[in-house]
Design a protein around this nucleic acid. Structure first.
Length: 584
RNA sequence: GCGCCCGUAGCUCAGUCGGAUAGAGCAUCAGCCUUCUAAGCUGAGGGUCGCUGGUUCGAUUCCAGCCGGGCGCACCA
């Protein structure tokens, strides 16, 4: 577990202390415990607290408080590392570090730069993240947008933690939906040619279908009228498919998302892959025939019932191609498959995990991330959508209104498995109530600060060049402690497949930086710079708003601190796929 | 009926190996203020962590049951 440089160091110190006590026969320690460190909630509990004494209590047959004392007494060169070591009630070890130790965090940010927070946790394991995968039967709507943001963030998070990641879009270009698309477009096409035709039942109602039909007419004229209805339908289908897939790609492109591969469901059918896979399962007695249909024995792997793969009429079900698809993914040698699905598909998880197990893999070789519904609001009022009438808010509309960055950040702000209230008015606002703005502004504000400093000829030292010993203010240390948690948050977001943790972290970091900026001075006041420096030391006449005295060394140290903050904010936003602007 | 998810401050939500007096933002209230980038700053109030039991030194967290909301239970995708 990566915990950040400082935490690693403390864990090391405490482990040494335990060993020392063990050597002296004071502790038995049949096995070395994990040193679990946490950030205490209250400042008087120190910088870092450790619960290891309590977890050792049972095996050592001693009160936790005593064990904590023993650990505290055996810390090597205790005064060099800690300014305080307290023991609190049950057996908490509350540690306050020498400020100098925290400065290591800033130097670490400097050496790692864009890689700060990244790790080798994944050890190069290969992961395939499949996401969006919306049917090419219409434009992407907000729900797809959330899935896209989540999927992309997962790709980036996994990469940052040492996984080799590929991203893929599965195109459902076979079956009933495609057929419906074809007849819907054809109907609108015929309408536009002056024919009165009944609109197909269950056809796609959306206005975009008319637009596609209009383009078909513009391109092909009345040519389709001379074809047989089957041919005309096929032509419409193919045309609509190309148009809509291109539209989806464009929307994703605008959203800043690209896929390494696009995988066609139809290709699985035409290549015979589906048949082949079913034959294989049949030979292993995992398929059986009943009621004229063919079934997959998914109940053998924990699904609540068996599932049809081939209908009575002989057509394959969606599951059949999905079995072939996941077979294909596994064959490509991925160590982990991540599927991002709409939450309404949650019932499919057991059967897909059954598929994975049927191929001899543990079921968690496939991890499914569910994305819940997005509630669009405008100034607190719900934006009504009716799917039946084909009226839904598209991702495009949302991007046009609030921008891709804001949309992404909002999509990622909450646990993807919970409903999301997305207020369009809020997402557009340039105020601190808007979390996207608040976080991005932290980055831009520091950029501006560095620009101003440069224009005034003030040196902006990097952490290794600054006198960091001057950073002793609790507000400064609080920010540095926060920066030290970045690697932990990044890793947890990746391991749990929960990008919202990072979004929260960034909000919290910005929540420390803005007040710091307002409270403390970083650059010397302009007016004072022109007058006598002695003015700085005079007691201010107006008591309330005394500009803080900032000697040059402190300015340098604070600039170095801000530089590190900026780097971390940028790294965090990057991993979420959100830009880090230098100017708002 | 069965299964999954959710239930934490007025609102929207964090809180995953069980830890200390349960946190944040918004809203509300009270003061202050006009800046290195600006759309503000500081503080306060606000809670039976859905309910009930269990596990234990300790439960928002784990288990069981109930209540409430969402979703799913297709030879649709």
């Amino acid at each position: 577990m990566a915990q950040g440089v400082v935490q690693d160091r403390i864990a090391q110190v405490l482990t040494e202390s335990l060993r020392f006590a063990q050597q002296r026969g004071i502790l038995k320690l049949e096995q070395m415990p994990v040193i679990n460190l946490e950030a205490p909630k209250r400042p008087e509990w120190g910088d870092v607290s450790c619960t290891v004494a309590m977890s050792l209590s049972a095996s050592e047959r001693r009160p936790p408080f005593e064990i904590a004392q023993i650990i505290a007494e055996h810390i090597h060169e205790r005064d060099r590392v800690f300014s305080r070591v307290d023991i609190a009630r049950p057996g908490f070890l509350n540690l306050t570090l020498k400020p100098a130790l925290w400065m290591e965090v800033l130097r670490h940010v400097e050496t790692q730069r864009d890689e700060y927070g990244h790790s080798h946790l994944g050890q190069g394991r290969r992961v395939l993240v499949e996401y969006v995968s919306a049917n090419p039967t219409g434009p992407l709507h907000v729900g797809h947008g959330r899935g896209a943001a989540v999927g992309q963030a997962l790709v980036r998070l996994l990469r940052a933690t040492g996984h080799e990641v590929a991203s893929e879009y599965y195109i459902n270009d076979a079956g009933r939906q495609m057929k419906l698309l074809g007849v819907s477009v054809l109907a609108r096409y015929l309408e536009s040619c002056g024919q009165t035709v009944p609109f197909p039942e269950d056809g796609y109602q959306g206005e975009y279908i008319r637009a596609v039909a209009a383009r078909a007419k513009a391109e092909q004229g009345t040519e389709l009228l001379s074809l047989s209805s089957n041919d005309a339908e096929q032509r419409s289908r193919e045309f609509a498919y190309r148009e809509l897939l291109a539209l989806i790609r464009q929307d994703l492109d605008t959203f800043g998302i690209t896929f390494e591969s696009w995988f066609s469901e139809a290709s699985l059918l035409s290549s015979g892959a589906v048949e082949e896979v079913l034959k294989e399962l049949e030979s292993r007695d995992l398929l059986f025939n009943q009621d004229g249909a063919q079934w997959f024995r998914s109940s053998a792997y924990g699904d609540e019932k068996d599932r049809v793969v081939r209908k009575q009429e002989g057509e394959y079900t969606y599951l059949a191609s999905d079995i072939a698809y996941h077979r294909d993914k596994l064959r490509r040698g991925f160590d982990l498959l991540v599927d991002v699905w709409g939450a309404d598909h949650h019932g499919y998880i057991p059967r897909m995990q059954a598929v994975v197990q049927a191929y001899g893999y543990p079921k968690d070789r496939l991890r499914v991330v569910l994305v819940q519904m997005v509630n669009l609001l405008r100034g607190g009022r719900k934006v009504e959508m009716s799917k039946r009438a084909g009226e839904f808010i598209t991702l495009r509309e949302v991007m046009d209104e609030v921008g891709a960055d804001a949309a992404k950040f909002f999509f990622l702000m909450r646990d993807s498995n919970t409903h999301l209230d997305f207020d369009l008015e809020l997402a557009k606002q340039q105020s601190q109530e808007n979390p996207v703005y608040y976080v991005q502004y932290a980055h831009a504000r520091i950029a501006s600060l560095l620009r101003v400093a440069a224009s005034r000829g003030i040196a902006c030292p990097l952490p290794t060049q600054a006198d960091l010993a001057l950073l002793v203010d609790p507000d400064e240390l609080a920010i540095i402690r926060k920066l030290s948690m970045f690697p932990v948050v990044l890793e947890a977001s990746a391991v749990e497949l929960e990008p919202h943790r990072m979004a929260y972290y960034l909000r919290e970091l910005a929540g420390l930086v803005h007040p710091f900026y307002n409270k403390h001075r970083i650059l010397p006041p302009v007016a004072d710079a022109d007058t006598t420096p002695a003015a700085l030391n005079d007691p201010p006449l107006s008591t309330s708003r005394a500009p803080e005295a900032v000697p040059p060394g402190l300015t340098g140290a604070r600039l170095a601190l801000m530089w590190a903050v900026q780097q971390v904010v940028r790294n965090g936003l990057t991993v979420l796929g959100v830009s880090a602007p230098d100017q708002m």
